[in-house]
Simulated scan of single mutants.
Amino acid sequence: MTDEKIEYIQWYPGHMAKANREIKEKLKLINVVIEVVDARLPLSSKNPEINQYTWNKQHILLLNKADLADPEVSQDWIDWFKKNTDIQQIMLYDAFDRRQKTELVKNIQTLNVKNKAQIKCLVCGIPNVGKSTVINSLIGKKKTQVGNKPGVTKGQQWLSTPENLMLLDTPGILWPKFEDPAVGLHLAWLGSIKDTLYEKENIAADLLKYLVAYYPDELEAIYKISVVDRNLPEIFDAIAKSRGLLIKGGEYDYTRTSVLILNDFKNGRIGRITLERP
Protein backbone atom coordinates (compact mmCIF):
# COMPACT_ATOMS: atom_id res chain seq x y z
CA MET A 1 0.00 0.00 0.00
CA THR A 2 1.37 3.43 -0.87
CA ASP A 3 1.52 6.46 1.43
CA GLU A 4 -0.79 8.24 -0.99
CA LYS A 5 -3.51 5.66 -0.38
CA ILE A 6 -2.95 5.54 3.39
CA GLU A 7 -3.77 9.26 3.64
CA TYR A 8 -7.38 8.55 2.72
CA ILE A 9 -8.04 6.33 5.75
CA GLN A 10 -9.86 8.92 7.85
CA TRP A 11 -12.95 8.32 9.96
CA TYR A 12 -14.68 10.86 12.20
CA PRO A 13 -18.44 10.35 11.95
CA GLY A 14 -20.96 12.72 13.50
CA HIS A 15 -21.65 10.56 16.56
CA MET A 16 -18.01 10.91 17.64
CA ALA A 17 -18.15 14.71 17.49
CA LYS A 18 -21.38 14.57 19.52
CA ALA A 19 -19.85 12.21 22.10
CA ASN A 20 -16.86 14.53 22.45
CA ARG A 21 -19.17 17.46 23.24
CA GLU A 22 -21.14 15.40 25.77
CA ILE A 23 -17.96 14.32 27.58
CA LYS A 24 -16.84 17.95 27.90
CA GLU A 25 -20.19 18.81 29.49
CA LYS A 26 -19.61 16.18 32.21
CA LEU A 27 -15.93 16.91 32.88
CA LYS A 28 -16.66 19.06 35.94
CA LEU A 29 -18.01 15.90 37.65
CA ILE A 30 -14.91 13.82 36.88
CA ASN A 31 -12.02 13.17 39.31
CA VAL A 32 -10.03 10.59 37.33
CA VAL A 33 -9.57 9.94 33.61
CA ILE A 34 -8.89 6.29 32.77
CA GLU A 35 -7.56 6.31 29.22
CA VAL A 36 -7.54 2.93 27.48
CA VAL A 37 -5.16 2.21 24.58
CA ASP A 38 -4.22 -1.05 22.85
CA ALA A 39 -0.87 -2.37 24.11
CA ARG A 40 -0.06 -3.63 20.59
CA LEU A 41 -0.17 -0.08 19.18
CA PRO A 42 0.13 2.17 22.24
CA LEU A 43 0.89 5.42 20.42
CA SER A 44 -1.32 5.05 17.34
CA SER A 45 -4.29 4.05 19.53
CA LYS A 46 -3.82 7.04 21.87
CA ASN A 47 -6.14 9.88 20.93
CA PRO A 48 -4.06 13.11 21.23
CA GLU A 49 -7.23 15.11 21.90
CA ILE A 50 -7.86 13.27 25.19
CA ASN A 51 -5.38 15.73 26.71
CA GLN A 52 -8.24 18.25 26.77
CA TYR A 53 -10.02 15.98 29.28
CA THR A 54 -7.01 15.39 31.52
CA TRP A 55 -5.25 18.71 32.05
CA ASN A 56 -6.62 19.22 35.60
CA LYS A 57 -7.57 15.59 36.40
CA GLN A 58 -5.77 12.56 37.75
CA HIS A 59 -4.82 10.45 34.72
CA ILE A 60 -4.36 6.68 34.42
CA LEU A 61 -3.17 5.16 31.14
CA LEU A 62 -4.10 1.51 30.63
CA LEU A 63 -2.19 -0.40 27.95
CA ASN A 64 -5.03 -2.88 27.55
CA LYS A 65 -4.86 -6.30 25.84
CA ALA A 66 -1.35 -6.62 27.25
CA ASP A 67 -1.76 -10.39 27.06
CA LEU A 68 -1.78 -10.06 23.24
CA ALA A 69 1.28 -7.78 23.06
CA ASP A 70 5.01 -8.55 23.00
CA PRO A 71 5.98 -8.31 26.71
CA GLU A 72 9.49 -6.95 26.08
CA VAL A 73 8.23 -4.16 23.83
CA SER A 74 5.40 -3.42 26.29
CA GLN A 75 7.95 -2.72 29.01
CA ASP A 76 9.79 -0.39 26.63
CA TRP A 77 6.52 1.49 26.13
CA ILE A 78 5.89 1.75 29.88
CA ASP A 79 9.36 3.31 30.25
CA TRP A 80 8.74 5.62 27.29
CA PHE A 81 5.42 6.95 28.64
CA LYS A 82 6.92 7.50 32.10
CA LYS A 83 9.79 9.47 30.58
CA ASN A 84 7.85 11.47 27.99
CA THR A 85 4.49 12.25 29.66
CA ASP A 86 3.23 13.53 33.00
CA ILE A 87 0.55 10.83 33.34
CA GLN A 88 0.18 9.89 37.02
CA GLN A 89 -0.12 6.12 36.54
CA ILE A 90 0.69 3.85 33.59
CA MET A 91 -0.30 0.18 33.67
CA LEU A 92 -0.17 -2.87 31.47
CA TYR A 93 -3.66 -4.35 31.72
CA ASP A 94 -5.47 -7.57 30.93
CA ALA A 95 -9.17 -7.15 31.71
CA PHE A 96 -9.52 -10.89 32.34
CA ASP A 97 -6.83 -10.96 35.07
CA ARG A 98 -8.46 -10.42 38.48
CA ARG A 99 -5.16 -9.48 40.12
CA GLN A 100 -4.70 -6.61 37.70
CA LYS A 101 -8.27 -5.45 38.34
CA THR A 102 -7.50 -5.36 42.08
CA GLU A 103 -4.30 -3.42 41.42
CA LEU A 104 -6.13 -0.90 39.23
CA VAL A 105 -8.78 -0.27 41.91
CA LYS A 106 -6.05 0.28 44.52
CA ASN A 107 -4.23 2.66 42.18
CA ILE A 108 -7.41 4.69 41.63
CA GLN A 109 -8.05 4.87 45.39
CA THR A 110 -4.53 6.18 46.10
CA LEU A 111 -4.85 9.10 43.66
CA ASN A 112 -5.08 12.63 45.00
CA VAL A 113 -8.81 13.40 44.66
CA LYS A 114 -11.18 15.39 46.88
CA ASN A 115 -14.07 12.97 47.34
CA LYS A 116 -12.48 9.61 48.25
CA ALA A 117 -15.89 8.20 49.25
CA GLN A 118 -17.12 8.17 45.65
CA ILE A 119 -14.47 8.69 42.99
CA LYS A 120 -15.93 9.51 39.58
CA CYS A 121 -13.91 8.15 36.65
CA LEU A 122 -14.19 8.84 32.94
CA VAL A 123 -13.28 5.73 30.92
CA CYS A 124 -12.30 6.80 27.41
CA GLY A 125 -10.34 5.79 24.33
CA ILE A 126 -10.68 5.11 20.63
CA PRO A 127 -12.97 2.37 19.23
CA ASN A 128 -12.11 -1.29 19.79
CA VAL A 129 -9.41 -0.94 22.46
CA GLY A 130 -11.52 -2.81 25.01
CA LYS A 131 -13.07 -0.03 27.13
CA SER A 132 -16.26 -1.98 27.76
CA THR A 133 -14.33 -5.10 28.77
CA VAL A 134 -12.27 -3.01 31.20
CA ILE A 135 -15.46 -1.59 32.72
CA ASN A 136 -17.07 -5.01 32.99
CA SER A 137 -13.97 -6.28 34.81
CA LEU A 138 -14.22 -3.41 37.31
CA ILE A 139 -17.95 -3.67 38.03
CA GLY A 140 -17.79 -7.45 38.30
CA LYS A 141 -20.57 -8.26 35.87
CA LYS A 142 -21.52 -7.69 32.26
CA LYS A 143 -23.25 -4.33 32.11
CA THR A 144 -21.82 -2.96 28.88
CA GLN A 145 -22.02 -4.52 25.45
CA VAL A 146 -18.68 -5.66 24.03
CA GLY A 147 -17.63 -6.54 20.49
CA ASN A 148 -14.51 -6.77 18.36
CA LYS A 149 -15.56 -3.95 16.06
CA PRO A 150 -15.86 -0.16 16.29
CA GLY A 151 -19.05 1.53 17.41
CA VAL A 152 -20.49 -1.03 19.85
CA THR A 153 -20.88 1.53 22.67
CA LYS A 154 -23.35 4.12 21.36
CA GLY A 155 -24.06 6.41 24.34
CA GLN A 156 -22.80 7.39 27.75
CA GLN A 157 -23.80 5.74 31.02
CA TRP A 158 -22.75 5.82 34.68
CA LEU A 159 -21.90 2.48 36.28
CA SER A 160 -20.81 1.70 39.85
CA THR A 161 -18.25 -0.81 41.15
CA PRO A 162 -18.37 -2.79 44.42
CA GLU A 163 -15.71 -0.36 45.75
CA ASN A 164 -18.08 2.58 45.13
CA LEU A 165 -16.20 3.94 42.15
CA MET A 166 -18.47 5.62 39.60
CA LEU A 167 -17.46 4.94 35.98
CA LEU A 168 -18.66 6.98 33.02
CA ASP A 169 -18.65 4.68 29.99
CA THR A 170 -18.27 6.55 26.68
CA PRO A 171 -18.28 5.63 22.99
CA GLY A 172 -14.94 5.22 21.23
CA ILE A 173 -13.77 8.56 19.88
CA LEU A 174 -11.17 9.19 17.18
CA TRP A 175 -9.89 12.63 16.22
CA PRO A 176 -10.85 14.66 13.12
CA LYS A 177 -7.67 14.07 11.10
CA PHE A 178 -4.72 11.67 11.36
CA GLU A 179 -1.68 13.84 10.64
CA ASP A 180 0.55 10.79 10.17
CA PRO A 181 -0.81 8.53 7.39
CA ALA A 182 0.63 5.49 9.17
CA VAL A 183 -1.83 6.02 12.04
CA GLY A 184 -4.84 5.32 9.80
CA LEU A 185 -3.14 2.14 8.60
CA HIS A 186 -2.38 1.02 12.17
CA LEU A 187 -5.93 1.68 13.34
CA ALA A 188 -7.27 -0.34 10.43
CA TRP A 189 -5.12 -3.24 11.67
CA LEU A 190 -6.73 -2.93 15.11
CA GLY A 191 -10.26 -2.80 13.70
CA SER A 192 -10.77 0.71 15.12
CA ILE A 193 -11.91 2.08 11.75
CA LYS A 194 -14.99 1.05 9.81
CA ASP A 195 -13.79 -1.69 7.46
CA THR A 196 -15.69 -0.40 4.42
CA LEU A 197 -13.31 2.57 4.23
CA TYR A 198 -10.26 0.70 2.97
CA GLU A 199 -9.11 -2.15 0.75
CA LYS A 200 -8.53 -5.14 3.01
CA GLU A 201 -5.93 -6.63 0.64
CA ASN A 202 -3.74 -3.53 0.89
CA ILE A 203 -4.08 -3.35 4.67
CA ALA A 204 -3.36 -7.06 5.12
CA ALA A 205 -0.30 -6.87 2.83
CA ASP A 206 1.19 -4.06 4.95
CA LEU A 207 0.51 -6.03 8.13
CA LEU A 208 2.07 -9.15 6.63
CA LYS A 209 5.17 -7.17 5.62
CA TYR A 210 5.63 -6.05 9.24
CA LEU A 211 5.06 -9.55 10.62
CA VAL A 212 7.61 -11.05 8.22
CA ALA A 213 10.18 -8.50 9.38
CA TYR A 214 9.60 -8.82 13.15
CA TYR A 215 7.65 -12.02 13.87
CA PRO A 216 8.52 -14.58 11.14
CA ASP A 217 8.53 -17.54 13.55
CA GLU A 218 4.97 -16.81 14.68
CA LEU A 219 3.80 -16.57 11.05
CA GLU A 220 5.42 -19.87 10.15
CA ALA A 221 3.91 -21.58 13.19
CA ILE A 222 0.30 -20.51 12.72
CA TYR A 223 0.09 -20.98 8.94
CA LYS A 224 2.48 -23.95 8.64
CA ILE A 225 4.52 -22.20 5.95
CA SER A 226 8.10 -21.04 5.43
CA VAL A 227 8.83 -17.35 4.86
CA VAL A 228 12.54 -17.86 4.14
CA ASP A 229 13.64 -16.54 0.72
CA ARG A 230 10.04 -15.70 -0.24
CA ASN A 231 8.73 -12.31 -1.28
CA LEU A 232 5.44 -10.91 0.01
CA PRO A 233 3.18 -12.17 -2.82
CA GLU A 234 4.67 -15.66 -2.43
CA ILE A 235 3.98 -15.63 1.32
CA PHE A 236 0.43 -14.45 0.68
CA ASP A 237 -0.03 -17.34 -1.77
CA ALA A 238 1.44 -19.80 0.72
CA ILE A 239 -1.04 -18.73 3.41
CA ALA A 240 -3.97 -19.03 0.99
CA LYS A 241 -2.78 -22.47 -0.08
CA SER A 242 -2.20 -23.63 3.50
CA ARG A 243 -5.78 -22.71 4.47
CA GLY A 244 -7.38 -23.87 1.23
CA LEU A 245 -8.67 -20.41 0.38
CA LEU A 246 -9.42 -20.83 -3.31
CA ILE A 247 -11.91 -19.43 -5.80
CA LYS A 248 -13.33 -20.96 -8.96
CA GLY A 249 -10.60 -22.27 -11.21
CA GLY A 250 -8.29 -23.04 -8.29
CA GLU A 251 -6.89 -19.51 -8.00
CA TYR A 252 -6.09 -18.09 -4.58
CA ASP A 253 -8.81 -16.05 -2.84
CA TYR A 254 -6.93 -12.94 -1.78
CA THR A 255 -9.95 -11.27 -0.18
CA ARG A 256 -10.61 -14.16 2.21
CA THR A 257 -6.88 -14.53 2.88
CA SER A 258 -6.67 -10.84 3.77
CA VAL A 259 -9.61 -11.10 6.17
CA LEU A 260 -8.03 -14.21 7.72
CA ILE A 261 -4.71 -12.44 8.41
CA LEU A 262 -6.38 -9.33 9.84
CA ASN A 263 -8.73 -11.34 12.09
CA ASP A 264 -5.96 -13.66 13.28
CA PHE A 265 -3.96 -10.61 14.37
CA LYS A 266 -6.90 -8.80 16.01
CA ASN A 267 -7.86 -11.89 17.98
CA GLY A 268 -4.32 -12.68 19.10
CA ARG A 269 -4.07 -16.00 17.27
CA ILE A 270 -0.74 -15.24 15.57
CA GLY A 271 0.97 -14.67 18.92
CA ARG A 272 2.02 -11.88 21.25
CA ILE A 273 2.75 -9.09 18.79
CA THR A 274 3.39 -5.36 19.09
CA LEU A 275 3.22 -3.35 15.88
CA GLU A 276 5.10 -0.18 16.85
CA ARG A 277 8.17 0.50 18.94
CA PRO A 278 9.07 3.55 21.02
Rank of each mutant, 00 (worst) to 15 (best):
T161H: 04
N56E: 13
T274K: 04
A17Y: 07
Q10E: 12
L245Y: 11
L92F: 02
N263V: 10
V228W: 10
L174D: 03
P171L: 10
F96Y: 15
D264Q: 10
N202H: 11
M16K: 05
V32D: 00
I78S: 00
K209W: 10
W80D: 01
D264L: 06
L187D: 01
G147V: 05
Q88R: 11
E234S: 12
Y210Q: 13
D97Q: 08
A205L: 11
I222Y: 06
A221T: 12
I247W: 02
S160T: 15
P127M: 08
T2P: 00
K177Q: 14
P150A: 13
R256H: 11
I222G: 04
R40V: 00
E179N: 14
K131V: 02
M166K: 10
N136L: 06
R99M: 06
A221V: 08
R99A: 08
K224Q: 14
K120M: 09
H186W: 05
G250T: 02
V212E: 06
G271H: 09
K106T: 14
L122D: 00
G140S: 09
L275T: 09
D217T: 15
V212R: 10
K177I: 06
A39R: 03
D229T: 09
D3I: 14
V134S: 07
N64F: 02
I23N: 02
I6V: 07
C121Q: 06
D70E: 13
N267S: 07
A188M: 07
R21N: 14
R243L: 12
Q88A: 13
L208M: 12
F236R: 10
I235S: 05
A182Q: 13
V146H: 03
V113R: 09
R277G: 01
